[in-house]
Design a protein around this nucleic acid. Sequence first.
DNA 1: CGAGTTGAGCTGGTATACCAAAAAGGGTAG
DNA 2: CTACCCTTTTTGGTATACCAGCTCAACTCG
Lengths: 215, 215
Amino acid sequence: MLAPQTEEAYRRLRRMILSLELRPGEPLVERKLEELLAVSRTPIRAAIQQLFREGLVQRTGRVYTVAPLDLAELEEAFEFRTWLETYVVRVAASRRPNARQLQELLASVEADLDPEIELEKATDFHLALAKLTGNRFVVASLAQVLQRIYRARYLEITRPQGADQALSDHLHLIELLQQGQAEAAAAFLQRHLERSREALLESLEGSILLGVRSS
Amino acid sequence: MLAPQTEEAYRRLRRMILSLELRPGEPLVERKLEELLAVSRTPIRAAIQQLFREGLVQRTGRVYTVAPLDLAELEEAFEFRTWLETYVVRVAASRRPNARQLQELLASVEADLDPEIELEKATDFHLALAKLTGNRFVVASLAQVLQRIYRARYLEITRPQGADQALSDHLHLIELLQQGQAEAAAAFLQRHLERSREALLESLEGSILLGVRSS
DNA sequence: CGAGTTGAGCTGGTATACCAAAAAGGGTAG
DNA sequence: CTACCCTTTTTGGTATACCAGCTCAACTCG
């Protein structure tokens, strides 16, 4: 979608931020990144703009820094998700997903050893559910909130059993959807998110990453 | 928030798009805009990127064009808004807004002769409502959908009585909120949006702007 | 006369030079 | 020793030069 160099810079920066290689609070100095990524400042600036818009990068004064993990933001994210996805699941269950849509859902519940890929798939699963509503704004809103809390979710999924729990939850949810059990699916999703939220908060508990302002 | 030249270019471009001065489908040629806006391509490119992310600008092949008005998108937007704002109003009514918050709401229901300002105020009103939930994702999602259908709303509000109807609706809604009548407020909002949707579709009916692909 | 080819000129993408403002560092005066 | 000021450096913002790919039109060859 973006220009090739910009896309590359964006993906590498995003990856470094999400995997916490670039720590929250760390300043993004364009001329350093120029050297690090071996591209000129132009695509780097475009990439930073993009990340800024997505909320992964913050601006404090004139300098761009990696956005800190924000506990309040996390709580708001889960409140919003719960409410959004509950709706999503109700709609999805009532409009029984067709074969192709089920395929897409199932494709995102394969186990994988790499936690980063696992997380991508979990994200895809929730977005595929949202797509079942046929409403692009639902999908866009969910995509935004998932992206925003990506780093915290990364911490959660790398815990022992972190990924397995999510996987089995997702599988069960698909079953409920197939059977058209809207209310059961909504209730189960709510529990799923509640569990996820608690595990995630626990992962963050005492994390040195919380509230770090600079490296 | 953005750099000054970029901000200026962004605002002017956005204004030209939203006011339909730049028609849907019209290509945005960087070197033409350079001349038109009297700034270099760098801030223009940044501004276009921003508009692209917001959905006001599309990419067809390698050229950026003003996004066409999309009837399906409009329907989805109203479906999403209705559902989102119904929730917003319920929450807002239950947590009776305080004086400062009411002030903010009331500030956005002053009549104005300029339809553009009127529309900004209507937008502010709905966003101020969303803020009452205290959830930044609710606000961000609503802001995005309102922005996305801004041009169609502009067409609606410039119709005779278009602005007055919205204004009196907003005033009534504030009253219901003050009285904490959550269900009545939610129901009224739903009617408000339904009216708005119909007026808007009527404005678009047969509009030459629908589906235009190039100038 | 028509189809294929070639080349000129747009266009967006990238690199880089330049600027102004802010931050950092050092030196001096009190 | 401290506080202030001045210089130097660093930084993001802007302008611009350069590049590669595509478009399209004109010309040539069959």
